[in-house]
């Protein structure tokens, strides 16, 4: 029976880790996700004491392999890998997995930043439009004729007082 070892990783985001694992060659339906960590299963079908939240069953890992798992911890997922499988899924594999993770993380962060930019821009447009409508309504009440122009992002309202 091959002993399990634990490899620490700095990866903390489940969705990004799943995306990185698919980049590394696993199909998405080969990866189990569990809210509560489940026991891993060894080569002989025996339940092992090691648990994981993300599990790739041994049949997808390789001939004569044991389950591969990632246990969620506050400081990052811990890879649970058997000594037997470590030759293939060891430090170098984790490094490559982490590279993929960082790339996906950068994409996600850029997407979030873009969404935030869009939200702020929408907020800004609403504010400018509310100001514009407020001034126009009051100008009308006060008997001004209004000529509106835009210069870049600035709205310019020239208010002409009717004197007739």
């Amino acid at each position: 029976m091959s002993a399990y070892i634990t490899l620490m990783t700095p990866m903390t985001n489940q969705e990004i880790l799943l995306a990185a694992l698919t980049d590394m060659g696993f199909q998405r339906d080969q990866i189990e996700v569990h809210a509560e960590a489940v026991q891993l299963v060894g080569y002989g079908g025996e339940r092992r004491s090691q648990t994981a939240n993300i599990v790739i069953r041994r049949r997808h890992v390789g001939t004569a392999s044991n389950d591969l798992g990632f246990l969620a911890t506050p400081t990052g997922y811990q890879l649970q890998v058997s000594d037997y499988d470590r030759h293939h899924y060891g430090d170098d594999w984790v490094r490559r997995l982490n590279d993929r993770y960082r790339q996906h993380e950068a994409i996600v962060q850029e997407r979030l930043a873009e969404a935030e930019r869009r939200r702020l821009e929408e907020e800004r447009r609403h504010l400018v439009e509310a100001q514009r409508l407020g001034v126009l309504a009051r100008a009308k009440q006060l008997g001004y004729q209004v000529k509106e122009t835009r210069e870049g992002d600035t709205v310019r309202l020239v208010l002409l007082k009717r004197t007739y």
Binding site: L127, V128, L142, D153
Partner: peptide
């Protein structure tokens, strides 16, 4: 005719110039 002018900046700030009545704001 007397004029006044309102500039609404990109951040929503208002610049009022000319000779506006206070009610305009």
């Amino acid at each position: 005719p007397p004029t006044c002018e309102v500039h609404i900046g990109a951040d929503g700030t208002l610049i009022l110039t000319g000779f506006p009545p206070p009610e305009l704001l």
